[in-house]
């Protein structure tokens, strides 16, 4: 069993991570770290490797080389305890992935009951609590298909929160949403950040990243090309980031 990290150590750290899909080198020596309570935004063009980097943190992709430590778990090692890792890490996907045959309440209570052995009544209280957090308490007994996209994504965030993760990963969570629905999801994430949740997010919402992120990691061709505080979005130093933020990506 791996040790949990002490407060001074980063919650997530990647060191020289390598990953190829066949001949395509997707991650070419990626390194970054996320401290407790920090919000890190991964940005970059499609195909720059940002989503792959995020998925490596929760071991949805196995890396070919390098070191990944998440909440004390050595994620790069083949013997990593996946279920322990995933109790510490929450992940929210672009396509929500709520379980369509279960009500919102059942979606949320399933993992706490099945994985942590929580009593049903306790899990139902928890479901109500996390739904209040995302502003969906009235949807407790609805099925996912009865919700709008924005509501489904908020429910998916609530489902993740119910496992009380130490770090949350967001993989382009607003990319599938109509512009008028992204706001309600971003507001929930903002509130989480304000509550001190450690977060890593892949996002195309530059305005949002600028407002919420403590640090920006700009990826380009599988490498961390430029990194720094949110201010690098307004005063980039590399031509690639200048071009990226200059092509209309920096809205609002």
């Amino acid at each position: 069993m791996q040790q949990n990290s002490s407060s001074s150590e980063p919650i997530v750290s990647l060191h020289n991570v390598q990953k190829s899909f066949g001949a395509l080198r997707v991650l070419d020596g990626v390194s970054f770290a996320v401290a407790r309570g920090e919000v890190l935004a991964l940005i970059g063009r499609s195909g720059s490797g940002k989503s792959t980097a995020l998925r490596c943190i929760d071991r949805f992709e196995k890396v070919d080389g390098g070191e990944i430590v998440v909440c004390g778990h050595r994620v790069d090692r083949p013997d990593v305890n996946l279920r322990a890792l995933r109790q510490d890490v929450g992940i929210v996907f672009q396509s929500y992935n709520l379980f369509p045959h279960l009500t919102i309440e059942q979606n949320i209570t399933l993992a706490p009951c099945a994985v942590k052995g929580m009593a049903t009544s306790q899990a139902k209280d928890l479901a109500r609590k996390v739904l209040v957090q995302v502003g969906l308490e009235e949807k407790l007994h609805a099925y996912p298909e009865q919700l709008s996209g924005g509501q489904q994504q908020r429910a998916a965030i609530a489902r993740s929160l119910a496992m009380q993760p130490k770090v949350m990963l967001f993989d382009e969570v607003t990319s599938a949403l109509d512009p008028e629905l992204t706001g309600e999801v971003l507001k929930v994430i903002e509130q989480l950040a304000a509550d001190g949740m450690t977060m890593v997010m892949v996002t195309h919402e530059m305005g949002f990243a600028k407002g919420i992120a403590d640090r920006i990691v700009f990826m380009h061709r599988g490498k961390v090309h430029e990194t720094g505080p949110a201010s690098i979005l307004t005063s980039p130093t590399t031509p690639e980031l200048t071009q990226f933020v200059g092509t209309g990506n920096l809205k609002s």
Binding site: D58, R83, Q87, F99, H101, L110, A111, A114
Partner: peptide
């Protein structure tokens, strides 16, 4: 069953058996 369903369940730390039992079986039968 969409791959995303299984990834979401894995992300919630459900075991292989739990994923079959809670997430895959009934929607597949339906």
């Amino acid at each position: 069953i969409p791959r995303g369903q299984i990834e979401a369940a894995e992300g919630l730390a459900l075991s292989r058996f739990q994923i079959y039992w809670h997430i895959i079986l009934l929607p597949a039968v339906e």
